[in-house]
Design a protein around this nucleic acid. Sequence first.
RNA 1: GCCCAGGUAGUAUAGUCCGGUCUAGUAUAAGCGGCUGUCGCCCGCUAGACCCGGGUUCAAAUCCCGGCCUGGGCGCCA
Length: 439
Amino acid sequence: MKLDALGDWVRTAYSMNVTPEMDGQEITLMGWVQEIRDLGGIRFVILQDREGTIQITIPKKKVSLEVLSKSDTLQKRFSIGVKGTVKKTNMTPRGIEVMPNEIKIFSTATEQLPIDITGKTPALIEARLDARALDLCQEQNLAVFKIQHHALAAIRDFLFEKGFLEIHTPRIIASATEGGAALFTMDYFGEKAFLAQSPQLYKEQLVMSLEKVFEVGPFFRAEASHTRRHLSEFVSVDIEQAFTDAKGVMELLEHTIQHACKVVNEKCSNELALLKHKVEVPTLPFKQLTYDEVLRDLKKKGVEVPWGEDIPTEAFRVLGKRYPHFYFITDWPTHSKAFYIKPREDKPELCEGFDLMWRWIELVSGGTRIADKALLVNRLKEQGLNPEAFKYHLQAFDYGMPPHAGWAIGLERLTMILTGKKNIREVTLYPRDRSRLTP
RNA sequence: GCCCAGGUAGUAUAGUCCGGUCUAGUAUAAGCGGCUGUCGCCCGCUAGACCCGGGUUCAAAUCCCGGCCUGGGCGCCA
């Protein structure tokens, strides 16, 4: 098929911008054929663009031969441009249709698409991810990523407003940062290197100079997790702040989350309606439970967790039913948290680390960090880590490390909460997990 | 890494327990034809599938074994 060049055509409106008041105006639309309904003497082509859909109406005896023959060849997913006249009508749900004067076909598509994009026979997640570029054209998916965009924009705006500077730390690192999680290894000009699991150590070092920093970026965990809430590559929204403690950054966090919910509610009402999901703007302050209180709560529900143990998922599910919104868990046993989390001065077996939960899902973790070098070295040893491997990080503590604290939000998990999606892969453009490296 | 479930047209499913009119059903998508107000359009026709390998049996989509792949759960965590 001979394709048309874009030429001097410029889009004058997105589908959603067209209103009945524009009756009689000529507009230029760009997009894709979503659906064709041919009734014989009249043909309806649904044009889709990023913002929505609009009906192109083709009464076969009234349009030019050129428009008719172009529209004869159209198929689903063809990329097209339409110059046409807006017509006010009571025969479409939106009260408008477009009578085409000229149609350009920019590109074609295969006859049989790998997934159903009309939603009549929804494909399973595997087939959808295999054809992700096409899958993302579906309105539901557009809605998910618009919500993610607005949530992240709201968080950025909020942090800028609070005086945070946006930073970029290395993804390629020389040694394991936190011990715990497995890292991906890579070859770095013949040396062994790792993909960063978090910006933790770098953002801590930066509070010595930039004081209040945040970073949004991908991090990597080589854990062979196989759940609906884990990825090998995920986006973390990290902050670190000098001259404050857990209490300070918890307050910042709850305001950040509240702001994001509020903005999403305001800006994404159409998207939320499409997803049949409601976002409640949470009231402040968030509920705070100590680790000990959580254990007591669980015991009442018949779930025994020995003191000092991590809380298993099953127990979190029980807890999530009792607290079906956002809540903090504080005062964790020191040994259960990373080496850089500060132990409480009055009770060193507990620490100033916290998690922010949404129902049963861990959304954020954070805490007061250790600013004292000797204590940090001790904690490294207690966790079975070699201080020598951290010498470049530890040297920062010789030059005036201020008291500081921070947290990290899992952006995909936040998006799950804001969209009601139950699988983290749905809210990730191109998810990476134990068994998926493509597309 | 461990545990469970499952692989049937492009997609989603029925059939599998209890082997045999299964020549594998349905929906949707696709192709062709018809229809001037559809909006999950409608109607007719056409084409399209039992994950791979081995075994049991007169006979395997169905039972057994191995493999591969997928989904879910646990652990780990954002």
